[in-house]
């Protein structure tokens, strides 16, 4: 497949502290084609950000380390690159947008300089050209009066505007891959929609692939082609958005779907419909990581780890009971209101 942009296989990221090892990401695999959008969903703490950070090799070390796996970007393993080569990938071929626009821009530099810096790190252009390019980028992300705004400081921008600036910085070098780590979580609902629209629009303009990290399935349905569901550092289900939407198979995915419905009904953000909390990542778990919270768990779930198995074309799941003939039936939930 010549369309393949990124292939991640068995990625493992561990953090060590004086007394223990936190296995934050434990064998995550996925592929991403050009111009495709991949969603990564999961509760907070499931290892989404760590996965994204690992792709740029920005895991703080110590305490963190990429302990295993491969990240083939256009056929080259990013893990084999020298630091210098990796730097020329960051911001140039792969860039990233973070969750909180209020803290991700440097407060003491003008926004124009922060965009220009990204350009000048990777392109041999004069200051003037970079400035013109920065103005263009600001226009592109829909900031009015770009020529004037370029000389302002981040604190003079609203949250939504700052996230637009972050998008401008990330896309300034027309990267092949944009990683967006919950780019709308910190924003108002109306602004969220605007930013998503903007990203979708820009994806078409500059032909970039996107990894969209979110805990909001609504976002996934809206803009993604594929999705992987993460739980406690593992991929538990992956497939095209269509299959997962129509035929979700993993009990954890069901839980996420239910919690989405609950939160839409009660209009309350982050209200989890899945009782319990994620497992302690420092402990060795022989069985399914979800077993403690899974309403369908059987004895085998606590003793043997379910493998990731392809159950239909492009749709994989790791659950002992979803790969056999005796499929679990999703329990009906009754909602009042």
């Amino acid at each position: 497949m010549s369309d393949l942009l990124l292939k991640v296989e068995d990625l493992e990221v561990h953090f060590r502290s004086s007394s223990s090892i936190v296995k934050a990401v434990n064998g995550v695999s996925f592929t991403l084609n050009k111009k495709e959008t991949l969603g990564i969903v999961g509760e907070s703490g499931s290892g989404k950000s760590v996965t994204a950070t690992a792709l740029l090799r920005l895991i703080p070390n110590p305490p963190g380390n990429i302990t295993g796996g491969m990240m083939l970007f256009e056929g080259t393993d990013l893990l084999s690159l020298s630091d210098k080569d990796m730097r020329s990938v960051r911001g140039n071929e792969i860039s990233m947008i973070f969750q909180d626009p209020m803290t991700s821009l440097n407060p003491v530099f003008k926004v124009g300089d922060q965009i220009m810096e990204s350009i000048r790190a990777h392109r041999k252009v004069s200051k003037k050209e970079a400035k013109a390019a920065a103005v263009d980028m600001l226009k592109l992300v829909g900031i009015p009066e770009a020529e004037k705004r370029i000389n302002m400081y981040p604190h003079e921008f609203s949250g939504g505007m700052r996230q637009r600036v972050m998008v401008a910085i990330a896309l300034a070098c027309k990267p092949k891959l944009l990683i967006a780590d919950e780019p709308t979580t910190a924003l108002d609902v109306t602004v969220q929609a605007q930013i998503l629209d903007l990203m979708r629009h820009l994806q078409d303009t500059i032909d970039t692939s996107i990894i969209m990290i979110t805990h909001d399935l609504g976002v996934v349905w809206e803009i993604c082609d594929k999705v992987i569901v993460m739980y406690a550092g593992n991929t538990v289900e992956s497939g095209s958005v269509k299959t997962i939407y129509e035929n979700p198979l993993h009990p954890y995915t069901w839980g996420l779907l239910d919690s989405q419905i609950t939160s839409e009904i009660s209009n309350e953000e982050g209200l989890s419909a899945i009782p319990g909390s994620p497992p302690d990542l420092r402990e060795e778990m022989p069985g399914c990581h979800f077993a403690d919270r899974c309403p369908y768990a059987q004895e085998i779930c606590f003793s043997a780890k379910p493998e990731m198995v392809e159950v239909e074309e492009g749709h994989s799941v790791s659950c002992h009971f979803q790969t056999k003939n005796t499929r679990l039936q999703r329990k009906e939930r009754v909602y009042h209101g």
Binding site: L56, G91, F98, S104, N106, P107, V108, S118, A121, H122
Partner: peptide
């Protein structure tokens, strides 16, 4: 440990520049 330092690194700036420009001025 601030987010904007991560942003600076994610732009592909070298560590010296990140520390001496982005971090130090703050």
């Amino acid at each position: 440990s601030q987010d904007y330092i991560k942003t600076a690194r994610s732009k592909g700036l070298n560590e010296f520049w990140v520390i001496c420009k982005h971090a130090f001025k703050n």
